[in-house]
């Protein structure tokens, strides 16, 4: 039997902690400090409850290109491809999804200097 509880992820995210956003943008693949680790863990464990499915990448060209998708929570339903979100690096994709999750979890928009593409 498998019992999993994504809603168990409850580390509180402070919308004022833009320093964590800066830290992630500087190094999307880590290593990360303790608090950013917790923030990322909250996001990844939680699995985008506000969205129609979990954000995932679908490989369009091995090692070279990835397309953002939404993995439905129900088995058998197709992955929804978001064809206007195509990436040529995993770091870019991580940053894009981080921004989507930040806004979904905090209910706030990132300031202009943090809402652009990866620096």
């Amino acid at each position: 039997m498998l019992v999993t509880y994504p809603e168990a992820a409850h580390w509180p995210i402070d919308p004022a902690r833009l320093d964590l956003v800066e830290e992630f943008r500087a190094k999307p693949r880590g290593p990360h400090g303790d608090e950013l680790q917790k923030l990322l863990h909250r996001m990844r464990w939680n699995g985008d409850p506000q969205s129609d499915g979990r954000y995932v990448l679908v490989v369009t060209e091995p090692g070279k290109q990835w397309t953002l998708g939404r993995l439905p929570r129900q088995r058998g339903k197709p992955i929804e491809l978001m064809r206007n979100h195509v990436f040529t690096s995993i770091a870019e994709a991580e940053w894009e999804v981080f921004k989507l999750r930040w806004e979904a979890l905090t209910g706030t928009s990132l300031p202009p200097h943090l809402s652009g593409p990866l620096a």
Binding site: L2, T4, P6, R29, G30, H41, R44, W45, G47, R54, Y55, V56, L57, V58, V59, W66, G69, L71, R75, P78, I79, I90, A93, E94, V97
Partner: peptide
Amino acid sequence: DQVHAEAMLEGLLTLSRDDA
């Protein structure tokens, strides 16, 4: 199927055509 997979693998899930 396992909701902890992304947390366990420490990054966005990268799925192949086979996975889809």
